[in-house]
Design a protein around this nucleic acid. Structure first.
Length: 210
DNA sequence: CTGGCGATTTCCT
DNA sequence: GGAAATCGCCAGT
């Protein structure tokens, strides 16, 4: 049974996610994520290296109840609550214990448009999943989806490869959004010229900052 | 178009 | 107690 999966799209996706986080992040572009009757084509992601010297990662200071799922195997969903009201979704990547993950920053709603519009205030189709919190809202993802197996057919949140892969030449890279430090790392990836990619805003400290 | 700011809860020091 | 991988609304250019 296990050998029967060799060479299949599922196996390809598993291997992609189990590998280094930067190729995994690039490979997630164009993939489709489905939840709550809505499917979104991923157009923008950010890589986080977990414990491997990335101060911006939630796992940088070690395992906590919130980030525990990141320390497990690849292909599971890490969702976190932030700014008092927003949920954001990550795909856990790499090997067990490494805690790397890819933040899903934006996408294009490709099915379940009515449901997505109902969950969001905006009726502007381009903005339905433009931003990590908006993407979760459009898909109806919240804390109950924490730890979902994205590759299981009966999971509440599912991930699948694109029907037509995104060409490497169409992938753009830049610094991560909202991250206080590590502006030199270009670990944000998006599909060039896609209108659903979120607008880049450099992180501005609210009060005094260094 | 750009930039500023309030909302509101959880997590961690 | 303070910051946080954000968003939507507001004002000014």
């Amino acid at each position: 049974m296990g050998d029967g999966a060799r060479g299949t799209p599922l196996r390809f996706l598993k291997d992609l996610l189990a590998g280094p986080v930067l190729p995994a992040a690039r490979g997630l572009l164009g993939c489709e994520i489905s939840a709550g009757g809505v499917t979104v084509r991923i157009t923008e992601v950010e890589a986080y290296a977990g414990t491997a010297g990335d101060p911006a990662s939630h796992a940088h200071r070690g395992r906590t109840p919130r980030n525990a799922i990141m320390f497990g195997p690849a292909g599971f969903l890490y969702v976190y609550f932030t700014y008092g009201m927003h949920w954001c979704a990550n795909v856990v990547t790499g090997v067990e214990g490494e805690a790397s993950a890819v933040l899903l920053r934006a996408g294009q709603v490709v099915s379940g448009l009515d449901l997505a519009i109902a969950r969001r205030r905006s009726t502007v189709e381009r903005d339905l999943a433009r931003g990590p919190a908006r993407l979760c809202q459009a898909l109806g993802i919240d804390g109950t989806a924490y730890g979902a197996d994205l590759l299981a057919p009966d999971a509440p949140v599912r991930l699948r490869l694109p029907s037509t892969p995104v060409l490497e030449s169409r992938i753009a890279a830049g610094p991560r959004v909202g991250v206080t430090g590590a502006h030199d790392l270009e670990w944000r990836f998006w599909i060039a010229d896609d209108p659903t990619v979120s607008v880049y805003r450099r992180h501005v400290p609210r009060k005094r900052a260094q």
